[in-house]
Computed example of a mutant assay.
Amino acid sequence: MDFSIPSDIQDMLANVGQFLREEVYPLEERFVSGAFADLVPTLEEKRARVKEMKLWAPQVPAEYGGVGLGFMQHAMLSEELGRTPMGHYVFNCQAPDAGNMEILAEFGTQAQKEQFLLPLAAGKSRSCFAMTEPECAGSNPVWMKTTAVRDGDEYVINGHKWFSSAADGAAFAVAMVVTNPDAEPHQRASQIIVPTDVPGYRWIRNIPVMGHAGDGWPSHSELRFENVRVPVSNLLGEEGAGFAIAQARLGPGRIHHCMRWIGICERSFDLMCERAATRELAPGDPLGNRQTVQNWIAESRAEINAARLMVLHAAWKIDNEGTKAAREEISAIKFYVAGVLMAVVDRAIQVHGALGVSDDTILQYFYRQERGARIYDGPDEVHKTVLAKRALRSFGMKK
Protein backbone atom coordinates (compact mmCIF):
# COMPACT_ATOMS: atom_id res chain seq x y z
CA MET A 1 0.00 0.00 0.00
CA ASP A 2 1.34 3.36 -1.01
CA PHE A 3 -0.30 6.28 0.79
CA SER A 4 2.12 8.89 -0.52
CA ILE A 5 0.43 12.00 -1.86
CA PRO A 6 1.43 13.08 -5.41
CA SER A 7 2.97 16.54 -5.59
CA ASP A 8 0.10 17.97 -7.64
CA ILE A 9 -2.42 16.82 -5.01
CA GLN A 10 -0.23 18.28 -2.25
CA ASP A 11 -0.24 21.61 -4.09
CA MET A 12 -4.02 21.43 -4.51
CA LEU A 13 -4.56 20.73 -0.81
CA ALA A 14 -2.25 23.61 0.15
CA ASN A 15 -4.13 26.00 -2.14
CA VAL A 16 -7.50 24.83 -0.81
CA GLY A 17 -6.31 25.22 2.79
CA GLN A 18 -5.12 28.76 2.16
CA PHE A 19 -8.39 29.66 0.40
CA LEU A 20 -10.48 28.34 3.29
CA ARG A 21 -8.43 30.15 5.94
CA GLU A 22 -8.57 33.46 4.09
CA GLU A 23 -12.03 33.36 2.52
CA VAL A 24 -14.26 30.97 4.49
CA TYR A 25 -13.12 30.78 8.12
CA PRO A 26 -13.98 34.49 8.65
CA LEU A 27 -17.63 33.68 7.80
CA GLU A 28 -18.02 30.99 10.47
CA GLU A 29 -19.29 33.24 13.24
CA ARG A 30 -22.23 34.29 11.08
CA PHE A 31 -22.78 30.72 9.90
CA VAL A 32 -22.97 29.10 13.34
CA SER A 33 -25.41 31.77 14.48
CA GLY A 34 -27.92 30.30 12.03
CA ALA A 35 -27.77 33.07 9.46
CA PHE A 36 -27.26 30.79 6.46
CA ALA A 37 -29.86 32.55 4.32
CA ASP A 38 -28.13 35.90 4.92
CA LEU A 39 -24.80 34.33 3.95
CA VAL A 40 -25.96 32.89 0.64
CA PRO A 41 -24.92 35.90 -1.53
CA THR A 42 -21.45 35.88 0.05
CA LEU A 43 -21.14 32.13 -0.30
CA GLU A 44 -22.10 32.39 -3.97
CA GLU A 45 -19.16 34.75 -4.42
CA LYS A 46 -16.87 32.17 -2.80
CA ARG A 47 -18.31 29.43 -5.00
CA ALA A 48 -17.55 31.56 -8.06
CA ARG A 49 -13.95 31.82 -6.84
CA VAL A 50 -13.79 28.04 -6.55
CA LYS A 51 -14.95 27.73 -10.16
CA GLU A 52 -12.16 30.11 -11.16
CA MET A 53 -9.71 27.88 -9.29
CA LYS A 54 -11.03 24.94 -11.38
CA LEU A 55 -11.85 22.95 -8.25
CA TRP A 56 -15.64 23.06 -8.57
CA ALA A 57 -17.51 19.78 -7.89
CA PRO A 58 -14.26 17.85 -7.44
CA GLN A 59 -15.91 14.43 -7.22
CA VAL A 60 -18.05 14.86 -10.37
CA PRO A 61 -16.77 13.51 -13.71
CA ALA A 62 -15.54 16.20 -16.08
CA GLU A 63 -18.29 15.37 -18.60
CA TYR A 64 -20.83 16.71 -16.07
CA GLY A 65 -18.86 19.84 -15.21
CA GLY A 66 -16.71 18.62 -12.32
CA VAL A 67 -13.00 18.01 -11.78
CA GLY A 68 -13.20 14.23 -11.86
CA LEU A 69 -10.86 13.55 -8.95
CA GLY A 70 -10.18 9.92 -8.14
CA PHE A 71 -11.64 8.34 -5.06
CA MET A 72 -8.51 8.62 -2.89
CA GLN A 73 -7.81 12.16 -4.07
CA HIS A 74 -11.30 13.30 -3.17
CA ALA A 75 -11.01 11.58 0.21
CA MET A 76 -7.90 13.64 0.95
CA LEU A 77 -9.64 16.81 -0.20
CA SER A 78 -12.60 15.97 2.07
CA GLU A 79 -10.32 16.16 5.09
CA GLU A 80 -9.17 19.66 4.17
CA LEU A 81 -12.71 20.84 3.42
CA GLY A 82 -13.98 19.31 6.65
CA ARG A 83 -12.04 21.80 8.75
CA THR A 84 -14.90 24.27 8.28
CA PRO A 85 -18.64 23.45 8.12
CA MET A 86 -18.95 25.43 4.89
CA GLY A 87 -16.02 23.82 3.08
CA HIS A 88 -17.88 21.16 1.12
CA TYR A 89 -20.75 23.51 0.27
CA VAL A 90 -18.43 26.13 -1.18
CA PHE A 91 -16.84 23.46 -3.40
CA ASN A 92 -20.23 21.90 -4.33
CA CYS A 93 -19.44 18.47 -2.91
CA GLN A 94 -21.71 18.68 0.14
CA ALA A 95 -24.01 15.94 1.36
CA PRO A 96 -26.58 15.00 0.25
CA ASP A 97 -26.02 16.62 -3.15
CA ALA A 98 -22.71 14.84 -3.68
CA GLY A 99 -24.28 11.43 -3.17
CA ASN A 100 -27.22 12.29 -5.41
CA MET A 101 -24.84 13.42 -8.13
CA GLU A 102 -22.97 10.13 -7.88
CA ILE A 103 -26.04 7.91 -8.18
CA LEU A 104 -27.55 10.04 -10.95
CA ALA A 105 -24.29 9.77 -12.88
CA GLU A 106 -24.15 5.99 -12.38
CA PHE A 107 -27.81 4.95 -12.53
CA GLY A 108 -29.66 7.85 -14.13
CA THR A 109 -31.06 7.89 -17.65
CA GLN A 110 -29.87 10.50 -20.11
CA ALA A 111 -33.08 12.48 -19.56
CA GLN A 112 -32.64 12.34 -15.76
CA LYS A 113 -29.06 13.54 -16.08
CA GLU A 114 -30.09 16.49 -18.21
CA GLN A 115 -33.03 17.47 -16.01
CA PHE A 116 -31.58 16.83 -12.56
CA LEU A 117 -27.84 16.07 -12.58
CA LEU A 118 -26.51 18.89 -14.74
CA PRO A 119 -28.20 21.74 -12.78
CA LEU A 120 -27.11 20.09 -9.52
CA ALA A 121 -23.50 19.72 -10.66
CA ALA A 122 -23.51 23.33 -11.87
CA GLY A 123 -24.71 24.57 -8.47
CA LYS A 124 -27.96 25.90 -9.95
CA SER A 125 -30.13 23.65 -7.80
CA ARG A 126 -30.03 21.64 -4.59
CA SER A 127 -31.47 18.26 -3.65
CA CYS A 128 -32.23 16.03 -0.69
CA PHE A 129 -32.35 12.30 0.03
CA ALA A 130 -35.56 11.12 1.70
CA MET A 131 -35.09 7.73 3.34
CA THR A 132 -35.42 7.88 7.14
CA GLU A 133 -38.92 7.62 8.62
CA PRO A 134 -40.03 8.56 12.14
CA GLU A 135 -42.24 5.47 12.46
CA CYS A 136 -39.52 2.96 11.48
CA ALA A 137 -36.13 2.23 13.04
CA GLY A 138 -33.42 3.83 10.95
CA SER A 139 -31.05 1.02 11.92
CA ASN A 140 -33.18 -1.34 9.77
CA PRO A 141 -32.78 0.11 6.26
CA VAL A 142 -35.15 -2.38 4.61
CA TRP A 143 -38.10 -1.40 6.83
CA MET A 144 -40.10 1.59 5.66
CA LYS A 145 -43.75 2.45 5.17
CA THR A 146 -43.63 5.03 2.38
CA THR A 147 -45.10 3.43 -0.76
CA ALA A 148 -45.16 4.11 -4.47
CA VAL A 149 -48.01 2.38 -6.30
CA ARG A 150 -47.96 2.32 -10.06
CA ASP A 151 -50.98 3.83 -11.80
CA GLY A 152 -50.50 3.71 -15.56
CA ASP A 153 -47.46 5.80 -16.45
CA GLU A 154 -47.21 7.30 -12.97
CA TYR A 155 -46.23 6.37 -9.44
CA VAL A 156 -48.49 7.52 -6.61
CA ILE A 157 -46.39 8.10 -3.49
CA ASN A 158 -47.65 8.26 0.10
CA GLY A 159 -45.58 8.39 3.23
CA HIS A 160 -43.78 10.29 5.96
CA LYS A 161 -40.05 11.10 6.00
CA TRP A 162 -37.83 13.05 8.34
CA PHE A 163 -34.18 14.04 8.76
CA SER A 164 -34.15 14.64 5.03
CA SER A 165 -31.04 16.79 5.06
CA ALA A 166 -31.09 19.98 2.99
CA ALA A 167 -34.74 19.55 1.91
CA ASP A 168 -35.38 23.20 2.78
CA GLY A 169 -34.94 24.87 -0.61
CA ALA A 170 -34.21 21.66 -2.55
CA ALA A 171 -35.47 21.39 -6.14
CA PHE A 172 -35.99 17.65 -5.90
CA ALA A 173 -35.81 14.71 -3.54
CA VAL A 174 -34.47 11.25 -4.22
CA ALA A 175 -37.02 9.24 -2.24
CA MET A 176 -36.60 5.67 -1.02
CA VAL A 177 -40.04 4.05 -1.31
CA VAL A 178 -41.58 0.58 -1.28
CA THR A 179 -42.68 -0.43 -4.78
CA ASN A 180 -42.59 -4.23 -4.42
CA PRO A 181 -44.02 -5.09 -0.98
CA ASP A 182 -44.17 -8.84 -1.64
CA ALA A 183 -40.55 -9.18 -2.78
CA GLU A 184 -37.58 -10.23 -0.65
CA PRO A 185 -36.67 -7.57 1.96
CA HIS A 186 -33.73 -6.16 -0.02
CA GLN A 187 -35.76 -5.96 -3.26
CA ARG A 188 -38.87 -4.18 -1.99
CA ALA A 189 -37.71 -0.58 -2.29
CA SER A 190 -36.93 1.67 -5.21
CA GLN A 191 -35.50 5.16 -5.52
CA ILE A 192 -37.68 7.71 -7.28
CA ILE A 193 -36.91 11.33 -8.14
CA VAL A 194 -39.60 13.65 -6.77
CA PRO A 195 -39.57 17.34 -7.78
CA THR A 196 -40.50 19.40 -4.74
CA ASP A 197 -43.02 21.51 -6.66
CA VAL A 198 -45.40 18.64 -7.46
CA PRO A 199 -48.85 18.59 -5.79
CA GLY A 200 -48.92 16.56 -2.59
CA TYR A 201 -45.28 17.09 -1.66
CA ARG A 202 -45.36 18.80 1.74
CA TRP A 203 -42.40 20.31 3.52
CA ILE A 204 -43.43 20.29 7.19
CA ARG A 205 -40.56 21.86 9.12
CA ASN A 206 -36.86 21.99 9.81
CA ILE A 207 -36.16 19.74 12.78
CA PRO A 208 -34.29 21.48 15.62
CA VAL A 209 -31.04 19.71 16.49
CA MET A 210 -30.04 20.47 20.07
CA GLY A 211 -32.01 23.68 19.92
CA HIS A 212 -30.96 24.84 16.46
CA ALA A 213 -33.27 24.24 13.47
CA GLY A 214 -31.18 25.94 10.80
CA ASP A 215 -32.40 26.85 7.34
CA GLY A 216 -31.50 26.10 3.75
CA TRP A 217 -28.77 23.57 3.09
CA PRO A 218 -27.55 23.06 6.71
CA SER A 219 -30.89 21.74 7.98
CA HIS A 220 -32.87 18.53 8.40
CA SER A 221 -36.51 18.46 7.32
CA GLU A 222 -39.70 16.55 7.97
CA LEU A 223 -41.66 15.76 4.79
CA ARG A 224 -45.01 14.31 3.79
CA PHE A 225 -45.91 12.67 0.49
CA GLU A 226 -49.69 12.79 0.02
CA ASN A 227 -50.81 11.17 -3.24
CA VAL A 228 -47.77 12.60 -4.98
CA ARG A 229 -47.78 11.68 -8.67
CA VAL A 230 -44.57 11.47 -10.66
CA PRO A 231 -43.92 9.84 -14.04
CA VAL A 232 -42.53 6.31 -14.10
CA SER A 233 -39.58 7.78 -16.00
CA ASN A 234 -38.47 9.30 -12.66
CA LEU A 235 -37.54 5.83 -11.39
CA LEU A 236 -33.81 5.73 -10.69
CA GLY A 237 -32.31 2.49 -11.95
CA GLU A 238 -34.45 -0.64 -11.85
CA GLU A 239 -37.59 -1.17 -9.81
CA GLY A 240 -36.66 -2.95 -6.57
CA ALA A 241 -33.01 -1.84 -6.78
CA GLY A 242 -33.32 0.95 -4.21
CA PHE A 243 -31.37 -0.84 -1.50
CA ALA A 244 -28.55 -1.80 -3.89
CA ILE A 245 -28.29 1.81 -5.12
CA ALA A 246 -28.26 3.03 -1.52
CA GLN A 247 -25.40 0.65 -0.69
CA ALA A 248 -23.47 1.82 -3.73
CA ARG A 249 -23.88 5.35 -2.44
CA LEU A 250 -23.28 4.77 1.27
CA GLY A 251 -20.10 2.67 1.16
CA PRO A 252 -17.84 5.23 -0.56
CA GLY A 253 -19.85 8.00 1.12
CA ARG A 254 -18.73 6.77 4.53
CA ILE A 255 -15.11 7.26 3.44
CA HIS A 256 -15.85 10.90 2.64
CA HIS A 257 -17.74 11.36 5.91
CA CYS A 258 -14.84 9.90 7.87
CA MET A 259 -12.25 12.08 6.14
CA ARG A 260 -14.45 15.11 6.79
CA TRP A 261 -14.58 14.11 10.46
CA ILE A 262 -10.79 13.89 10.52
CA GLY A 263 -10.69 17.43 9.16
CA ILE A 264 -12.92 18.50 12.06
CA CYS A 265 -10.57 16.66 14.44
CA GLU A 266 -7.54 18.47 13.02
CA ARG A 267 -9.22 21.87 13.31
CA SER A 268 -10.29 21.08 16.90
CA PHE A 269 -6.80 19.80 17.70
CA ASP A 270 -5.22 23.03 16.45
CA LEU A 271 -7.62 25.11 18.53
CA MET A 272 -6.93 22.95 21.60
CA CYS A 273 -3.16 23.31 21.24
CA GLU A 274 -3.39 27.05 20.62
CA ARG A 275 -5.52 27.50 23.72
CA ALA A 276 -3.25 25.31 25.86
CA ALA A 277 -0.17 27.21 24.74
CA THR A 278 -1.56 30.73 25.21
CA ARG A 279 -4.11 30.56 28.05
CA GLU A 280 -2.39 31.31 31.34
CA LEU A 281 -3.66 30.10 34.70
CA ALA A 282 -1.29 32.59 36.29
CA PRO A 283 1.32 34.94 34.77
CA GLY A 284 3.88 32.78 32.96
CA ASP A 285 1.99 29.54 33.68
CA PRO A 286 0.19 28.33 30.51
CA LEU A 287 -2.53 25.70 30.65
CA GLY A 288 -0.34 23.43 28.54
CA ASN A 289 1.95 22.86 31.54
CA ARG A 290 -0.69 20.61 33.08
CA GLN A 291 -0.10 16.92 32.56
CA THR A 292 -3.79 16.19 32.01
CA VAL A 293 -3.92 18.66 29.14
CA GLN A 294 -0.71 17.19 27.72
CA ASN A 295 -2.30 13.73 27.88
CA TRP A 296 -5.36 14.98 26.01
CA ILE A 297 -3.16 16.46 23.30
CA ALA A 298 -1.02 13.32 22.98
CA GLU A 299 -4.03 10.98 22.94
CA SER A 300 -5.79 13.12 20.34
CA ARG A 301 -2.74 13.22 18.08
CA ALA A 302 -2.33 9.43 18.20
CA GLU A 303 -6.06 8.75 17.69
CA ILE A 304 -6.35 11.14 14.72
CA ASN A 305 -3.30 9.59 13.05
CA ALA A 306 -4.67 6.07 13.59
CA ALA A 307 -8.10 7.08 12.28
CA ARG A 308 -6.62 8.59 9.13
CA LEU A 309 -4.58 5.47 8.34
CA MET A 310 -7.66 3.28 8.89
CA VAL A 311 -9.70 5.38 6.48
CA LEU A 312 -6.97 5.51 3.84
CA HIS A 313 -6.61 1.74 4.06
CA ALA A 314 -10.37 1.30 3.58
CA ALA A 315 -10.30 3.68 0.63
CA TRP A 316 -7.32 1.82 -0.86
CA LYS A 317 -9.20 -1.47 -0.54
CA ILE A 318 -12.31 -0.01 -2.24
CA ASP A 319 -10.11 1.25 -5.08
CA ASN A 320 -8.32 -2.09 -5.50
CA GLU A 321 -10.91 -4.73 -4.54
CA GLY A 322 -14.28 -2.99 -4.60
CA THR A 323 -16.79 -1.83 -1.99
CA LYS A 324 -18.06 -5.32 -1.18
CA ALA A 325 -14.58 -6.56 -0.26
CA ALA A 326 -14.10 -3.57 2.05
CA ARG A 327 -17.28 -4.04 4.11
CA GLU A 328 -15.40 -4.84 7.32
CA GLU A 329 -13.07 -1.89 6.91
CA ILE A 330 -16.00 0.45 6.18
CA SER A 331 -17.86 -0.68 9.31
CA ALA A 332 -14.71 -0.32 11.41
CA ILE A 333 -13.95 3.24 10.34
CA LYS A 334 -17.58 4.32 10.64
CA PHE A 335 -17.74 3.77 14.41
CA TYR A 336 -14.06 4.26 15.22
CA VAL A 337 -13.64 7.64 13.52
CA ALA A 338 -16.98 8.87 14.88
CA GLY A 339 -15.74 8.02 18.39
CA VAL A 340 -12.41 9.78 17.84
CA LEU A 341 -14.30 12.81 16.51
CA MET A 342 -16.41 13.14 19.64
CA ALA A 343 -13.44 12.54 21.96
CA VAL A 344 -11.21 15.16 20.30
CA VAL A 345 -13.92 17.83 20.08
CA ASP A 346 -14.87 17.18 23.71
CA ARG A 347 -11.26 17.56 24.88
CA ALA A 348 -10.87 20.76 22.88
CA ILE A 349 -14.01 22.19 24.49
CA GLN A 350 -12.74 21.23 27.94
CA VAL A 351 -9.42 22.99 27.35
CA HIS A 352 -11.32 26.12 26.32
CA GLY A 353 -13.45 26.05 29.47
CA ALA A 354 -16.61 28.15 29.34
CA LEU A 355 -15.44 29.68 26.05
CA GLY A 356 -15.67 26.22 24.46
CA VAL A 357 -19.42 25.89 24.97
CA SER A 358 -20.13 29.44 23.82
CA ASP A 359 -20.95 30.45 20.28
CA ASP A 360 -17.65 32.36 20.18
CA THR A 361 -15.81 29.27 18.88
CA ILE A 362 -16.58 26.75 16.15
CA LEU A 363 -16.21 23.93 18.69
CA GLN A 364 -19.77 24.09 19.99
CA TYR A 365 -21.08 23.83 16.43
CA PHE A 366 -18.96 20.75 15.80
CA TYR A 367 -20.15 19.19 19.04
CA ARG A 368 -23.88 19.61 18.52
CA GLN A 369 -23.95 18.98 14.77
CA GLU A 370 -21.59 16.04 14.68
CA ARG A 371 -22.99 14.09 17.62
CA GLY A 372 -25.14 12.52 14.93
CA ALA A 373 -22.00 10.95 13.43
CA ARG A 374 -22.52 7.99 15.74
CA ILE A 375 -26.10 7.57 14.45
CA TYR A 376 -26.48 8.37 10.75
CA ASP A 377 -25.24 6.08 7.98
CA GLY A 378 -25.81 3.24 10.42
CA PRO A 379 -25.48 3.62 14.20
CA ASP A 380 -22.24 2.53 15.87
CA GLU A 381 -23.90 -0.52 17.37
CA VAL A 382 -24.98 -1.89 13.97
CA HIS A 383 -21.50 -1.53 12.50
CA LYS A 384 -19.94 -3.15 15.57
CA THR A 385 -22.36 -6.06 15.23
CA VAL A 386 -21.49 -6.47 11.53
CA LEU A 387 -17.78 -6.47 12.29
CA ALA A 388 -18.08 -8.87 15.24
CA LYS A 389 -20.30 -11.35 13.37
CA ARG A 390 -17.90 -11.50 10.44
CA ALA A 391 -15.02 -12.14 12.83
CA LEU A 392 -16.92 -14.85 14.70
CA ARG A 393 -17.97 -16.51 11.45
CA SER A 394 -14.36 -17.36 10.71
CA PHE A 395 -14.30 -19.32 13.98
CA GLY A 396 -17.34 -21.41 13.06
CA MET A 397 -20.16 -19.38 14.57
CA LYS A 398 -23.12 -19.42 12.16
CA LYS A 399 -25.60 -17.00 13.75
Rank of each mutant, 00 (worst) to 15 (best):
F3V: 11
I5D: 10
P6M: 08
S7M: 02
D8S: 11
V16F: 04
R21E: 10
E22R: 13
E28M: 03
A35S: 13
A37G: 13
V40H: 04
T42V: 10
A48T: 10
V50Y: 07
P61W: 04
A62T: 15
F71G: 02
H74G: 09
E79N: 03
L81W: 10
R83K: 15
R83I: 01
V90S: 13
A98L: 05
N100C: 08
L104T: 12
F107L: 11
E114D: 13
F116S: 07
C136R: 11
G152I: 04
E154V: 11
I157L: 15
I157V: 15
D168Y: 10
G169E: 10
A171G: 14
A171H: 09
V174M: 13
V178L: 01
V178T: 10
H186K: 07
A189W: 01
S190L: 07
V194T: 04
P195C: 05
G200C: 04
Y201H: 12
P208H: 05
G211I: 11
H212S: 12
G216S: 14
L235D: 07
E238G: 09
G240I: 03
R249T: 06
F269Q: 04
R279C: 11
G288P: 08
Q291C: 05
Q294E: 10
E299Q: 12
I304F: 05
A307K: 09
K317N: 06
K324M: 01
E328N: 13
E328R: 09
Y336V: 03
R347H: 12
R347W: 15
I349D: 05
V351I: 14
A354W: 01
A354M: 05
T361L: 08
I362D: 02
Y365R: 09
Y365I: 01
F366R: 01
E370V: 00
G372V: 12
E381D: 06
H383M: 00
T385V: 02
T385S: 10
A388I: 00
A391P: 00
S394G: 00
M397Q: 12
